[in-house]
Design a protein around this nucleic acid. Structure first.
Length: 578
RNA sequence: GCUUCUGUAGUUCAAUGGAUAGAAUAUCUCCCUCCGAAGGAGGUGAUGCAGGUUCGAUUCCUGCCAGAAGCACCA
């Protein structure tokens, strides 16, 4: 890549000047008028060699110019001592040709070839709603998975579902009290059942006691009548989730359940109790976090606290189950890396958990990476099924689809097509709004404002793609060739922003993959779409009379390729019309 | 109370320690005789406060203020 070429060049000239620089930092200047690449090495080293940055920069440039490759048109010293590189027309023309050659593979790299990765995400709980928080986890997990795949890794997608535990007992208690016995109840009925159970748990001590009993019975599968109720509810939930995954474009390779992790988790904890890992305390088995330093490599800071792994009823808690899960995952798939995506409210648990795992399954702990995202918060506060202000994924998608349909009214399309477009645009808009910010911070979700169809949005990207496609269709009917990319005669003038952004896609992919940062892809694609739209407004792309038209068509085609590949990384589909 | 995270235009988000802090939205102007106006061009508008490190700080360090999450048998 040209990036490495320039870095080496700078490095060599530093050596020639007797400066031992470690790594050369090369960046794209924020302001495109400052060139395509820029380095601050002169500013960094000026002091150590006792020169002023400007004359050092000039010295470096003198060396570089001697070995200037054809891709670089111009090098200049600017500002306080930056060295700016301007790439040549030939470079951009060749880049367009390269994009057309690689097509759907453009942007891929082989950094992770041979690596096996398991990514766990979404993790909804059967018996409860699939809400916008799960949507968030899903969008991030799917995108992270695709970033791994785009870099050559073999990825298995996993979903871990809490089909057991107190929340299930609450729902089953609700089912009993609402006399839901037959199997023809809906997901809404189940939601109601959970809600009434959760309410009773808070308000009614006797009911609370019953639920704890139920929890134990469900865990032990000891009551046949309860089992039937439980299995029916679980089934309805899981089928409902599958429909949502289909819409979201996720296909899980593995479904793990808490009901299967508990036993192994419990056994593991018991095995390591009194071995300096877990210990008994107040009738429960705990991991005394205060006695252990955080595991090496974990996000530093802060001590650990003690957590209960097996409660005084003898049931494994979330923490013990998570240990069991790690083992089960590895038994199924010998991963090199296991990524677990959750909301950030469990950060502290995970720190403790990973420390315990480090003692119990050191090899697995080393391969596990916890990636936490912020939570979706409503302007009115936190979502809670008890309060009843939960926004379900289904209702959000439906509301978005309705808005798309409204926009599609004047379009002459079949209803079936419109439905498909509505789904693609609605899901794309939602995913964009989730992925546009860096993973980690909370998102205040305002139903009316957060998801936009205009400006900085999913549909903005999809729309620019549709437009470009429509231009290409016109070019085809006018029989304008475009596969042989030649620079416009007469040099073609100053490269446009569009031409300068297109070749950067592989760099964006690489960095986004290394940093688990889909938002870098979003930011890039948004800038790219803006560049295309601007280009589109200023230039007539298709013109049979104009000999430079084929180049502009090729450029348009290159844009559709990069946009489509980029959107794929985000888990967003494209449509030919909208 | 303790621990962790977060404070950037009215609002929602960007900015590997770098150049004039970028977008979008809202608001105020323009642009469909021209390949899709879900678009384009332009105006107004921001780094919580106080110190420190640095040639250079939105970014790193300290203190304060504000918000959020977590802190033993829920997940």
């Amino acid at each position: 890549m040209i990036e490495d070429k320039i870095k080496k060049l700078v490095h060599k000239s530093l050596q020639a000047l007797g400066i031992e620089g470690e790594s050369v930092s090369l960046e794209h200047p924020a302001d495109i008028s400052h060139g395509d690449y820029s380095t601050n090495v002169a500013l960094v080293h000026a002091k150590s060699v006792g020169m002023n940055p400007l004359s050092l920069a000039a010295g470096i440039v003198r060396y570089i110019v001697l070995k200037r490759p054809p891709e670089i048109e111009r090098i200049e010293v600017a500002g306080a001592g930056f060295i700016n590189f301007y790439l040549s027309r030939e470079f951009f023309t060749e880049s367009i040709a390269e994009i057309l050659r690689h097509a759907q593979d453009f942007g891929q790299n082989d950094l992770l070839v041979g690596k096996k990765v398991m990514v766990e995400y979404t993790d909804p709980n059967p018996f409860k709603e699939f809400h916008i928080g799960h949507l968030m986890s899903n969008a991030i997990g799917e995108s992270v998975s695709r970033l791994f795949e785009f870099q050559g890794a073999e990825v298995k997608r996993a979903c871990y579902q809490g089909d057991i535990g107190l929340h299930v007992a609450k729902a089953v208690w609700g089912m009993k009290s609402k006399k839901i016995h037959d199997s023809r109840f809906t997901i809404q009925d189940l939601g109601e059942a959970y809600k009434s159970g959760a309410e009773a748990y808070e308000a009614d001590a006797a009911a609370k006691e019953e639920m704890h009993e139920l929890n134990k019975k469900i865990f032990e599968k000891s009551d046949e009548r309860i089992n039937i109720l439980y299995l029916a509810g679980r089934q309805v939930s899981l089928e409902y989730f599958e429909e949502i995954y289909k819409k979201l474009g996720t296909k899980f390779d593995y479904h793990f359940f808490e009901s299967e992790t508990g036993e192994i988790g419990k056994k593991t904890v018991e095995e390591f109790t009194g071995q300096g890992v877990f210990e008994k305390s107040q009738g429960a088995i705990i991991f005394p976090g205060e006695k252990h330093l955080p595991a090496p490599g974990l996000r530093q800071a802060g001590g650990l606290h003690s957590r209960v792994f097996i409660n005084s009823q003898g049931l494994p808690t979330y923490e013990a189950k998570e240990l069991g899960l790690a083992k089960i995952k590895y038994d199924k798939y010998k991963y090199d890396q296991s990524v677990v995506i959750t909301g950030n409210e469990v950060n502290d648990y995970f720190k403790v958990l990973l420390r315990a795992m480090n003692l119990v399954f050191p090899e697995l702990a080393k391969k596990t990476k916890h990636l936490s995202h912020g939570i979706l918060r409503l302007p009115s506060g936190k979502m809670s099924s008890r309060v009843g202000n939960v926004i379900t994924a289904e209702s959000l998608i439906a509301a978005m689809e309705a808005m798309v349909h409204k926009k599609l009214e004047e379009r002459e399309l079949e209803t079936k097509e419109k439905n498909k477009i509505a789904e693609i645009v609605a899901v794309g808009a939602i995913k964009y709004s989730i992925l546009k910010q860096a993973i980690g911070s909370d998102i205040v979700f305002d139903f009316g404002k957060s998801i936009s169809f205009e400006g900085d949005s999913g549909p903005y990207l999809q729309y620019s793609y549709v437009r470009a496609k429509s231009v290409l269709a016109k070019a085809a009917t006018e029989k304008i060739p475009h596969l042989e990319v030649k620079p416009p005669s007469g040099g073609g003038g100053v490269p446009s922003l569009l031409e300068r952004l297109l070749p950067r896609f592989p760099e964006v992919v690489k960095r986004a993959g290394q940093e688990y940062a889909p938002h870098l892809v979003v930011t890039y694609l948004t800038a790219l779409a803006a560049a295309f739209n601007s280009y589109y407004a200023k230039n007539q792309i298709v013109n049979a009379e104009d000999k430079t038209s084929p180049y502009r068509v090729a450029l348009t085609q290159a844009f559709t390729i990069v946009m489509k590949n980029g959107l794929w990384l985000l888990g967003i589909e494209t449509s030919e019309q909208m």
